[in-house]
């Protein structure tokens, strides 16, 4: 089927099998491999992207459902080589190890800040719990987010 996806500000007309998820469309058809596949079952958050500004798991969304919606991925976060404050804070606080969950964590953190849910340690813990990290970087992820929240 014909599907036009608006990703990171540009329209991409695609010919897709109806089964293709947003995640696979991004990764396999648009070459945007920043969003990761950790479970393909909505249980790990590695595929987190923004859909019309809200964070969603791209693995449980059909690409076809995303027409006329704006998809934002990690690839669009830094502008002309300048890292987004959340990206810079993740690097500074060593908020990752293997790095595989990191794009999802960062997209989730960006959304968390926009949702106004980075006001306290407890809020960050709870509302970042949809992103698993097997390397165990959680404390540093919180530090990075707190840092950005406090910078305003």
């Amino acid at each position: 089927m014909e599907v036009t996806l608006n990703v990171n500000g540009s329209a991409h007309p695609l010919r897709l099998d109806a089964r293709v998820t947003l995640l696979d469309a991004l990764r396999d058809h648009l070459g945007l491999t920043g969003a990761k596949k950790g479970c393909d079952q909505g249980a790990c958050g590695a595929c987190t992207v923004l859909l019309d500004g809200r964070r969603v798991v791209a693995c449980l969304t059909l690409a076809a459902q995303c027409e006329e919606r704006e998809v934002t991925t990690i690839e669009a976060l830094s502008e002309e080589g300048t890292p987004h404050p959340v990206q810079a804070a993740f690097a500074r606080h060593d908020a990752f190890q293997c790095g595989y969950c990191t794009p999802g964590q960062i997209m989730s953190a960006v959304a968390l800040l926009a949702e106004g849910r980075a006001g306290s340690e407890e809020e960050i813990r709870e509302f970042m719990s949809g992103n698993l990290c097997r390397c165990g970087a959680y404390p540093n992820i919180r530090k990075a987010i707190r840092d950005v929240a406090e910078e305003g």
Partner: peptide, 14 residues
Amino acid sequence: DRVDAALKVTGSAN
């Protein structure tokens, strides 16, 4: 900081 940090936070690590 990790020397591979820039790649990992931008989703560019392959």
